[in-house]
């Protein structure tokens, strides 16, 4: 489970994330909504231990990411926004490397790699070099890396970005399925995704949470029963302020 307490991040004088707090329990899928530049990726980078927070803290399954990063990181599967990959490797080679990093070996390693390849529909490109993959496949390869070690916590930064509608659908189904026994935090700016796969959603604007609730609650709050209207209302009024 993920606990974030009053986390903030300054870049120079710019405040990218402002005293954000939220919790994601096991079995929950939290949608992280917000316009571009709201601070979603920055928050995720702090929660995954890539960048240190300016203040506040994040705990993964009760382990502080700043005090005990090594332990905490073993519990997390993370898909960064740009789905970065080592271009000189094959899909299989890359996943085996990730399995080594995750301390999997022998048959556990092979099984984990096979399973991740199957789950992310990568069988046809398993032995292809990563630099020859199309965008959708690159994205799914990086997603496979996040699922490989069957982590308790999944953090996915725009997991459906750049996918075609079929792939988007598959990934949403996957998130929903995995969410039954994991804590998942995923960001998006596509509002249908919230209804499709989240148990709860927060809307972030300029580093602050401006709305929070189940999809049904959020829709109930919305002026004319559509999430889009709510999103426009809470984020535009804030930008105007």
């Amino acid at each position: 489970m993920i606990e974030v307490v009053n986390i903030s991040k300054h870049f120079g004088t710019k405040l990218a994330v402002d005293q954000l707090s939220f919790t994601v329990r096991k079995g929950e899928v939290l949608g992280f909504l917000g316009p571009n530049g709201a601070g979603k990726s920055t928050t995720m980078r702090m929660v995954t231990g890539f960048i240190p927070p300016s203040s506040g803290e994040a705990r993964i399954c009760g382990i502080s990411i700043t005090e005990n990063p090594y332990e905490a990181k073993t519990k997390i599967g993370y898909l960064p926004e740009s789905a970065p990959l080592y271009n000189d490797m094959t899909v299989m080679g890359f996943l085996k490397f990730c399995a080594d990093v995750r301390k999997l070996s022998g048959s556990a390693k092979n099984d984990a790699v096979e399973k991740a390849i199957e789950t992310c529909f990568l069988t046809s490109v398993a032995h292809q070099s990563i630099d020859t993959l199309s965008k959708g496949y690159r994205h799914r390869t990086c997603l496979a890396q996040a699922l490989l070690h069957d982590p308790e916590v999944l953090i996915l930064d725009e997991p459906t970005d750049g996918l075609d509608p079929n792939q988007k659908y598959e990934v949403r189904q996957l998130i929903k399925r995995l969410g039954k026994d994991k804590a998942i935090l995923f960001s998006t700016h596509i509002l249908e995704e919230v209804e499709a796969s989240c148990t709860r959603a927060v809307i972030v604007d300029r580093g602050k949470i401006v709305a929070d609730g189940t999809p049904a609650e959020l829709i109930a709050k919305a002026p004319n029963g559509s999430l889009t209207e709510l999103f426009r209302k809470v984020t535009t009024t804030d930008t105007a302020a």
């Binding site: 231990g49 960064p80 970065p84 990959l85």
Partner: peptide, 14 residues
Amino acid sequence: RNGTIELLGTFPVS
């Protein structure tokens, strides 16, 4: 340049 530093930085690797 490839952003893989973000993977490396979130792996349990010091």
